[in-house]
Lab assay of single mutants.
Amino acid sequence: SELMNSSKLIRMLEEDGWRLVRVTGSAHHFKHPKKPGLVTVPHPKKDLPIGTVKSIQKSAGL
């Protein structure tokens, strides 16, 4: 199965306009000026399962 580095996923979010608002432990929480909701990324993780990545991307509207 495909894995993604959390840094790469965070870069994709930031390029889309998401900004880090809070860190709780290894959970990084992002908000967007125009899009609704809060997106949480486990970080640092070298090997996020593709299912997790897809669900984060979906929440972020990517």
Score class of each variant (00 low, 15 high):
residue 1 S to D: 14
residue 2 E to L: 09
residue 3 L to Y: 13
residue 3 L to V: 12
residue 3 L to F: 11
residue 4 M to H: 09
residue 4 M to W: 15
residue 4 M to Q: 13
residue 5 N to Q: 11
residue 5 N to V: 10
residue 5 N to G: 13
residue 5 N to K: 06
residue 5 N to Y: 06
residue 6 S to Q: 02
residue 6 S to C: 02
residue 7 S to P: 04
residue 7 S to V: 08
residue 8 K to N: 15
residue 8 K to R: 13
residue 8 K to Y: 12
residue 9 L to I: 07
residue 10 I to A: 02
residue 10 I to Q: 02
residue 10 I to G: 01
residue 11 R to P: 02
residue 11 R to N: 11
residue 12 M to A: 08
residue 12 M to Q: 10
residue 12 M to G: 04
residue 13 L to H: 00
residue 13 L to I: 09
residue 13 L to F: 01
residue 13 L to E: 00
residue 13 L to Y: 00
residue 13 L to S: 00
residue 14 E to R: 13
residue 14 E to P: 00
residue 14 E to I: 11
residue 14 E to W: 10
residue 14 E to S: 07
residue 15 E to C: 10
residue 15 E to I: 09
residue 17 G to H: 04
residue 17 G to S: 04
residue 18 W to D: 00
residue 18 W to M: 00
residue 18 W to P: 00
residue 19 R to T: 14
residue 19 R to N: 10
residue 21 V to A: 10
residue 21 V to Y: 13
residue 21 V to H: 10
residue 21 V to T: 10
residue 22 R to C: 10
residue 22 R to H: 13
residue 22 R to Y: 13
residue 22 R to S: 12
residue 23 V to C: 07
residue 23 V to N: 06
residue 24 T to S: 11
residue 24 T to G: 12
residue 24 T to I: 09
residue 25 G to D: 14
residue 25 G to S: 13
residue 25 G to Q: 13
residue 26 S to G: 15
residue 27 A to K: 09
residue 27 A to T: 09
residue 27 A to D: 11
residue 27 A to Y: 15
residue 27 A to V: 08
residue 28 H to I: 05
residue 28 H to Q: 08
residue 28 H to A: 15
residue 29 H to E: 14
residue 29 H to S: 13
residue 30 F to N: 00
residue 30 F to S: 00
residue 31 K to T: 15
residue 32 H to M: 01
residue 32 H to D: 00
residue 33 P to N: 08
residue 33 P to F: 10
residue 34 K to E: 10
residue 34 K to Q: 12
residue 34 K to S: 12
residue 34 K to H: 13
residue 34 K to L: 11
residue 34 K to N: 12
residue 35 K to N: 03
residue 36 P to I: 08
residue 36 P to Q: 09
residue 36 P to E: 10
residue 36 P to W: 07
residue 36 P to H: 10
residue 36 P to C: 08
residue 37 G to K: 06
residue 37 G to D: 05
residue 37 G to Y: 04
residue 38 L to M: 10
residue 38 L to W: 11
residue 38 L to V: 14
residue 38 L to Y: 13
residue 38 L to E: 14
residue 39 V to W: 01
residue 39 V to G: 00
residue 40 T to A: 11
residue 40 T to K: 13
residue 40 T to V: 12
residue 41 V to R: 00
residue 41 V to W: 01
residue 41 V to F: 04
residue 41 V to Y: 01
residue 42 P to T: 05
residue 42 P to M: 05
residue 43 H to M: 03
residue 43 H to T: 03
residue 43 H to N: 03
residue 44 P to Q: 03
residue 45 K to P: 04
residue 45 K to D: 07
residue 46 K to A: 14
residue 46 K to W: 11
residue 47 D to I: 15
residue 47 D to K: 12
residue 48 L to N: 01
residue 49 P to E: 07
residue 49 P to H: 06
residue 49 P to G: 09
residue 49 P to K: 06
residue 50 I to H: 13
residue 50 I to G: 07
residue 50 I to Y: 09
residue 51 G to R: 13
residue 51 G to S: 14
residue 52 T to A: 07
residue 52 T to V: 15
residue 53 V to E: 02
residue 53 V to Q: 05
residue 53 V to C: 05
residue 54 K to C: 10
residue 54 K to D: 10
residue 55 S to I: 07
residue 55 S to G: 11
residue 55 S to P: 02
residue 55 S to C: 10
residue 56 I to N: 01
residue 56 I to T: 02
residue 56 I to W: 01
residue 56 I to Q: 01
residue 57 Q to A: 08
residue 57 Q to I: 15
residue 57 Q to N: 05
residue 57 Q to D: 02
residue 57 Q to W: 14
residue 58 K to V: 13
residue 58 K to E: 15
residue 59 S to Q: 15
residue 59 S to V: 13
residue 60 A to K: 01
residue 60 A to T: 03
residue 60 A to R: 01
residue 61 G to A: 06
residue 61 G to V: 03
residue 62 L to E: 02
residue 62 L to F: 05
residue 62 L to G: 03
residue 62 L to P: 02
